[in-house]
Write a protein that binds this DNA or RNA. Sequence first.
DNA 1: AGCCTTTGACCAGCG
DNA 2: TCGCTGGTCAAAGGC
Length: 102
Amino acid sequence: SSHLVMPEDGYEWKKYGQKFIKNIQKIRSYFRCRHKLCGAKKKVEWHPSDPGGDLRVVYEGAHQHGSPASSSSAAAETGGAASNRYELGAQYFGGGAGARSQ
DNA sequence: AGCCTTTGACCAGCG
DNA sequence: TCGCTGGTCAAAGGC
C-alpha cells in the first residue's frame, strides 16, 4: 500500500534496479530515461524508515531531447543537449523535507 | 496484450 | 586472489 511519492520531474523514467546501500543504510532505486537516444539516469535513495524525510534524488547526465512530457521543469539541467557533462557531481535534490545540496 | 515494477543473480572495481 | 559493495540485467508478476 505504501507507495513512495517521489518528486515528479516531468521526465519519463524506467526503473531498472533497486538495492540497499549498506554504506549509508539507505534504499536506492535506479532509473533510466525512457527516451531512446537519451543516456540520462536517475537514482533515488531514501531511508527505509523515513521515505519522505530523507528522500534524495540524484540525476546523472543530460537529456538528448527537449521538453519533458509535463510542464513542470523542476529538473533544471546544466546545458541541456548542448553539453553532456557526465560527472560524479550530479544534481542532488531533496523531496520537500530534506531539501538541500547545491 | 502491453507496459512498468519487482527481485535475485550476475558482473565489475577496489581493498 | 578473494570478498564485499555497488550497478545492471533479466524474467515474472501486477495493473
